[in-house]
């Protein structure tokens, strides 16, 4: 972590400690944004940190944003933070002006019915926080290229829905809606960026689950001693620690260089780490962890909501495998060793 990133982490951890607690997590399940959290983020320029300095941002890298999102994931911070950060960058990259407030973001493979700026019989699934944002951005695939569509939430008919964590994910429909649109470069690059940022959030939540489980195993007594003294519990938590450490190194590698191969690998590896985090942290917590009142589910349900987001675990595994199939036995290792190299060899 460089000096800037150490600063970013300290800043976001302070903000999270001040503004996100149990009440905010509960309210999010009733479709209420943590207002104080987001107003501090906007004030501190964090939601627009990916914008270049000349458009009001601080020119932060995606790796810097990953630091913020890892901490936000650890705190289970609700709301469209990732979406707003990346959507601001999308707006700037497409030559559209930055937004003032929060933004929602979805990726779609096709937009049937879109002619020019008029979109007929439009349907969007699983749109995060559609009623709490200023604009809804859609990255639509057109071959290898991406078309950015910017829409006004008011133009849509909303059917409220939610993800596994209870955060809003709505179904939006419109007989016809006007959108602003612009070319925004390579679709897969944007999907990779979103996927890497989600990886950081998943990692943060999984790390929290491990930490809390270790603490709990040292507090909870059964048979006259802490359950962490039992080898069966120790072995489970050691296994989880391995998953988390392995996932952390590959996510950090992906965040540093944003190399598509490493991002695909990170999301695939995280899929297994998230599964282990959910299963093992709940097993260690016993019945208590299953109650809504106890904090563990705020992280494990987010792992459920996020692990297949911006490309499922299996999608990223297929993408990753295709980088290597067709190679000879002699060429396979060099491809592994050089994967993610900053300077192509």
């Amino acid at each position: 972590m460089n000096e800037n990133q150490t600063f970013f982490r300290a800043t976001i951890e302070r903000i999270l400690a001040d503004t996100v607690g149990k009440a905010e997590l509960d309210h999010a399940e009733e479709r209420q944004l943590p207002e104080a959290f987001f107003s501090v983020l906007v004030e501190n320029g964090i939601t627009s940190m990916l914008l270049p300095e000349d458009t009001g941002g601080i020119g932060a890298s995606l790796g810097d944003a990953a630091i913020i999102l890892r901490a936000a994931g650890a705190a289970a911070a609700p709301g469209p933070l990732l979406e707003t950060m990346l959507a601001q960058k999308l707006l700037a990259s497409s030559g559209l002006g930055p937004a003032q407030g929060l933004l929602s973001l979805v990726f779609i493979n096709e937009a049937p019915g879109l002619v020019g700026s008029r979109w007929s019989d439009a349907v969007l699934h699983d749109v995060p926080w559609s009623q709490a944002v200023e604009k809804i951005l859609i990255v639509s695939r057109s071959g290898n290229e991406a078309r950015l569509l910017v829409s006004d939430p008011a133009g849509w008919t909303t059917e409220p829905g939610m993800d596994a964590a209870g955060e809003p994910r709505d179904l939006l429909t419109a007989e016809a809606i006007d959108v602003t649109s612009a070319n925004c470069g390579d679709y897969d690059s944007w999907l990779c960026a979103a996927s890497m940022l989600r990886a950081a959030q998943i990692l943060g939540s999984a790390e929290w689950s491990l930490r809390r489980s270790i603490e709990y195993a040292s507090e909870r007594k059964q048979f006259g001693r802490e359950i962490g003294k039992f080898q069966a519990v120790q072995q489970m938590l050691a296994e989880l620690a391995g998953h988390i450490l392995a996932a952390a190194t590959i996510v950090e590698a992906a965040a540093d260089d944003c190399h598509p191969t490493m991002i695909a690998a990170a999301r695939s590896r995280l899929g297994d780490a998230a599964d282990a985090a959910i299963a093992i942290s709940h097993q260690v917590h016993g019945a208590l962890g299953f109650s809504q009142e106890y904090a563990l589910n705020s992280r494990t349900r987010r792992l459920m909501a996020w692990r297949d987001d911006f490309g499922s675990v299996l999608y990223w595994r297929r993408v990753l495998a295709r980088q290597f199939t067709g190679l000879s036995r002699e060429a396979f290792w060099p491809a592994i060793a050089d994967a993610g190299a900053t300077v192509p060899r």
């Binding site: 690998a265 595994r317 495998a321 290597f324 994967a339």
Partner: peptide, 15 residues
């Protein structure tokens, strides 16, 4: 591809 991709991701993380 899914099985192989999973294996390769574990390999890259281990490395």
């Amino acid at each position: 591809q899914e099985e192989l991709g999973r294996l390769i991701s574990h390999l890259l993380a281990l490395r």
